[in-house]
Amino acid sequence: MIPYVTLSIDGALIKAAKGTSVLDVAIEYGICIPHLCHVPNLSDLGACRLCIVEHVVNGRSKVTTSCTLRVREGMVIRSNTERIRHLRRNIAELLVAQAPNSRAIQDIAVRCGVKKVRYPFRNENCVLCGRCVRVCSEMWQAKAIGFVGRGKDRKVDTPFSQPSEACKRCGTCIDLCPMTITPCDGPMKPGEEYLCGKCESQMMEANSSPDQCIWCDLGEGFQCGRY
C-alpha cells in the first residue's frame, strides 16, 4: 500500500502519495502551476523557477520551487498569491526577453501576466531548461548531450561539439524542446522581436474555467500544466 499524506494547496485539502512532488500533485488535481523545465517522469532540476510557490512553515512563508518540493503531511502551499504572481511574472519576463521566438515561451509569458518587457530582446535559441539533456540521459540512457561550461557560457552541447557516438537519433530532444514551436505569425526578424500577447484576450476566460485550457496548445511534446 502506498502511504498517503494530506496537504493543502491554495486552500484545497489534497491527498497525495508520499514521495511525489507538490507540482505533480497540483497538476494532477487541476491546479495550474506554470512550469517549463519540468517533464513528467523525468527528474526535476529546479532550473526555470516558474513553478515557485509559497510554502508556509510555522506561519512563515518561504518561496520555493514546487517541482523539487516533496509532499509532506500537513503541508500548506500557496501557489497563486500576489507575491508569487509578481515573482513569476518577473521570471517569465526574463525568459521571454531571452527567447521571444518561441511560442511556448511567449505563451508562458502571457500566462504569467507579462504585459511589457523591460529589457532589450535577445534572440537566443536555447533557454537552458535542460529538457533535452534529461530525456537523453534518463529515458534513453544515451548521455549524448549535456551541459557544457558555466554561467553565461553554459550551453547544451556534445563533447568537443562533435557528433556524438552515443546519440541514437531518436529525436526526443527536439520533440521536448520549447524552442521548436514558432510563434503563430512565424519567426520574428532579428531586431524586431516583440511580446506577442495575442492569446491574452482569452486569458480571462481560461482563468474562470480552470478545467479548460483553450490557449495552451503548445504542440506535441510540450505539455503545459493543464493537459
Binding site: 529546479g46 532550473a47 523557477r49 529589457y119 532589450p120 554561467g151
Partner: peptide, 21 residues
C-alpha cells in the same frame, strides 16, 4: 558573479546578466 554563477537557474543566470547590462 556572472563569471562564477553555475548558470543553472533563470533568476541567477539571466538576472545577473540583465543587471550587468
Amino acid at each position: 558573479l556572472q563569471d562564477e554563477s553555475c548558470g543553472k537557474c533563470v533568476p541567477c543566470r539571466l538576472g545577473i546578466d540583465r543587471m550587468l547590462e
